[in-house]
C-alpha cells in the first residue's frame, strides 16, 4: 500500500516539475516585465530584483501608441469573430441538416484553413491595394475571414450534430419554417458552441501576426505587430516588449478559462470532442 502511495507522490512531483518547465517561458516573460530595464540585459542568473512598474508606465507615457494598438486588435478580433459567426451559423445548419451534395463544400471550407496564410498574403495585398483599403481595420477583418469562418463553420457544425432532429420535426409539423427553427430553436440551444467559437476566433485573430504585418502600416496596426516594432535594427527595448507581450497574452489566458470545457473541440475544429 505505501509503495503505491510513494509512486503517486513521485508522479505528482514529476507532474509539477513538468508544468514548471512547460510554463517557464510565460512565467519568465511575466517576471521580466517587472524587472528594471537596467537588470534585464545583465548576464547573471539571479532572480532577485526589486519589482517595478516602470516598463508598463513607459508603454503608457512614452510615444508608443499602446491604446491605439489595443483598440485596433480589439475591434478587428471582435468584428472578425462576430461576423464570422453570423455567417457560419446558418451555413453549419445547412451543412449538418442537408447532407446531399455538400460534402465537397465543407471540405473546401476546411482546406482554406489548411492553406498557409502566405498563400493569401500576396493576392490580398494587391486586392486591398486596389480597393484602397490597405492599412484599414476593414481590410484586416476581411482577410481574417480566411481562418475565422472555417473555424466557425466546422466547430458549429460539430455542436449542431448533437442537437436532436426530433425537436425540429415537431416544430415543422406545427408549420414553422426552417429560418424560424434556426433562429428560435437551434440558436438558443447553440449558446455554448457560439461562445466557444467566439472565443477561439477572437484569440486566433488577436494573436495573428503575419497578415497584420503585411497589410498594415500604422493606422490599423495591431498589438502583435506593435510589440514586434520594439525590435529595431539598432536596439531592442526588452522592458517595453515584455510589458506589451504580457498585455497581449494575459487577456487570452483569462478568456481560456471560459472555454476550457470546449477548448479541445474548438482547436481541432470539432474533429475531437
Amino acid at each position: 500500500m505505501s509503495h503505491k502511495k510513494w509512486k503517486k507522490i513521485i508522479l505528482y512531483i514529476i507532474a509539477i516539475f513538468t508544468v514548471m518547465i512547460v510554463d517557464f517561458p510565460v512565467v519568465f516573460m511575466f517576471i521580466t516585465s517587472f524587472k528594471p530595464i537596467s537588470q534585464i540585459m545583465v548576464p547573471n542568473l539571479k532572480f532577485s530584483f526589486t519589482p517595478t512598474l516602470e516598463n508598463y508606465k513607459m508603454l503608457v507615457t512614452e510615444n508608443f501608441p499602446l491604446f491605439k494598438y489595443l483598440l485596433n486588435s480589439f475591434i478587428i478580433s471582435l468584428c472578425s469573430a462576430v461576423i464570422a459567426i453570423a455567417l457560419s451559423l446558418p451555413a453549419s445548419y445547412g451543412i449538418s441538416r442537408f447532407k446531399e451534395k455538400k460534402e465537397g463544400t465543407d471540405f473546401w471550407i476546411l482546406s482554406t484553413r489548411m492553406a498557409p496564410p502566405v498563400v493569401f498574403a500576396l493576392p490580398m495585398f494587391l486586392i486591398l491595394k486596389f480597393f484602397n483599403i490597405i492599412d484599414t481595420r476593414i481590410g484586416l477583418i476581411l482577410t481574417y475571414f480566411t481562418f475565422t469562418i472555417p473555424l466557425a463553420v466546422w466547430i458549429l457544425k460539430a455542436f449542431m450534430m448533437e442537437i436532436p432532429k426530433s425537436l425540429e420535426e415537431a416544430a415543422m409539423l406545427d408549420g414553422a419554417t426552417r429560418s424560424y427553427i434556426l433562429l428560435r430553436i437551434i440558436t438558443p440551444l447553440m449558446k455554448p458552441g457560439i461562445v466557444s467559437v467566439f472565443i477561439i476566433d477572437f484569440v486566433f485573430a488577436w494573436n495573428e501576426f503575419f497578415f497584420a504585418l503585411i497589410l498594415t502600416l500604422d493606422k490599423a496596426t495591431t498589438l502583435t505587430v506593435g510589440t514586434a516594432r520594439f525590435i529595431t535594427g539598432y536596439s531592442i527595448y526588452w522592458g517595453s516588449i515584455a510589458g506589451a507581450s504580457m498585455i497581449a497574452a494575459i487577456p487570452m489566458i483569462i478568456l481560456m478559462f471560459f472555454v476550457q470545457k470546449f477548448l479541445v473541440r474548438g482547436l481541432t475544429m470539432g474533429a475531437v470532442k
Binding site: 517561458p25 510565460v26 521580466t32 494573436n207 525590435i231 497574452a249
Partner: peptide, 19 residues
C-alpha cells in the same frame, strides 16, 4: 495550467525566446 502556452501569440513566444 498546461494549456496556457497555446493561448499566447506565437510572436510573443518568439520574442520571449529571442531574449
Amino acid at each position: 495550467i498546461l494549456a496556457f502556452p497555446i493561448m499566447i501569440a506565437p510572436l510573443v513566444y518568439g520574442i520571449t525566446f529571442k531574449l
